[in-house]
Design a protein around this nucleic acid. Structure first.
Lengths: 203, 203
DNA sequence: ACTTAAACTGAACACTGTTTAGTAATTTTG
DNA sequence: CAAAATTACTAAACAGTGTTCAGTTTAAGT
């Protein structure tokens, strides 16, 4: 291994170290409540060092973005086992919901947060996200092949489905279901999802 | 007018002054980019004074919440003119979209932001929001009376519709439509909305 | 005129992200 | 090997943040 390669590896190693620490802190404190100084302290370096490996705070958390999608995609394994496309689509929805409430912080950086998104459009970190979206379109396409969704465009319908799923989940996460009594909220979401999937089945 | 009443009026006057200034700054700088010091400077008082009238920064922006809903509700006037309930429902959706992109900052505090929401559950400021939600349920109910949405629960369906609308709008606002080429994004949303309303009409 | 109460503020506290000038350690070169 | 050059790192500062509190100014009541 040449000198240049080793240097690059060390550099990546340090980035990894920072990221790991940031990730850890992020999970039990959220984005806004961790500082560069926190991260620096955790890895026992000075705050200034972090700026040698990352442009700014956003770049650090944008990197977590990819991590979040990897975990999300790991939820899809179970979905892929299901043979019937329509059942698979519904399972995908169920897993989406499960992921949302199991990892609200991840959901936050993936789909809600404004901050770390002002990044390179053509970044590699988006590939993991694109993969998830491709998966949805693939399942919808297969449903079509099975006789569902006649005269409905795959891409558009996929976006419609995603919109519904995201809307429901983010309204819940961001506490916008106050109009409904606390005790009813979950049941409303469940019934709504059931209603939505029943509609899809009938298409 | 007694002394107590005048004092109360002065107090409200000062709150109004702070709110107005905050509102103004909020509209052209966003939430995170204004400070208590900014607001104080604008009304030519010391930052400490603001804390005599508001508990904290969140309380100030929570107050804007009500304002945002008032503006939203003003969009509903045009909707109410439409006789046919189904057409009215669709118009409501169109107006929702129009509002979202005309006032992204308002949409933000109303439906997305986390920060100013940690407030009193039973606050009066929620009434304006509840009104908007009632309006939706009312229109859906009327659709039912007109023979639509057979065997679908009004409350659940209303939530389903809202979820879709919010999902689509917030994905757009929070820049989560990157998977689609920039030039196509708006058309995808339009087509999706058309698709969604067509589905509703057929129910 | 004196007291009481209300309104307001300067200055501080404990933070924040970020930059820069300078130090310490390590390599490369003569 | 020693000198020079490069790299890795950091202390300290900058310019801000939300928030608190002791203390002052202003106004009202007696």
């Amino acid at each position: 291994m040449g000198v240049k390669e080793r240097k690059e590896r060390d550099r990546q190693g340090m980035r990894e170290k920072i990221l790991q620490s940031a990730h850890h802190l992020f999970l039990d404190k959220g984005f806004e409540d961790i500082s560069i100084r926190n991260i620096a302290e955790a890895i026992e370096y000075s705050p200034a060092t972090i700026y040698l490996y990352f442009k700014d705070k956003n770049e650090i958390f944008f990197a977590l973005h990819g991590e979040a999608f990897k975990i999300f995609n790991s939820y899809l394994g179970e979905v892929m086992l299901i043979k019937d496309p329509m059942d698979r689509l519904i399972k995908l929805g169920e897993k989406y919901i499960e992921f949302t409430f199991a990892h609200p912080r991840y959901y936050n950086i993936m789909f809600i947060m404004e901050a770390p998104m002002n990044c390179d459009e053509n970044s590699e970190d988006w590939q993991e996200g694109a993969k998830a979206h491709c998966f949805l379109e693939g399942v919808v396409e297969e449903c079509k092949k099975n006789g569902h969704f006649k005269n409905l465009n795959t891409k558009i319908l996929s976006f419609t489905i995603w919109s519904y799923m995201h809307g429901m989940c983010s309204l819940a996460l961001r506490n916008r279901m106050r109009i409904y009594p606390e005790a009813e909220r979950e049941s409303i979401r469940k019934k709504s999802f059931k209603q939505f999937t029943n509609l899809l089945k009938a298409l």
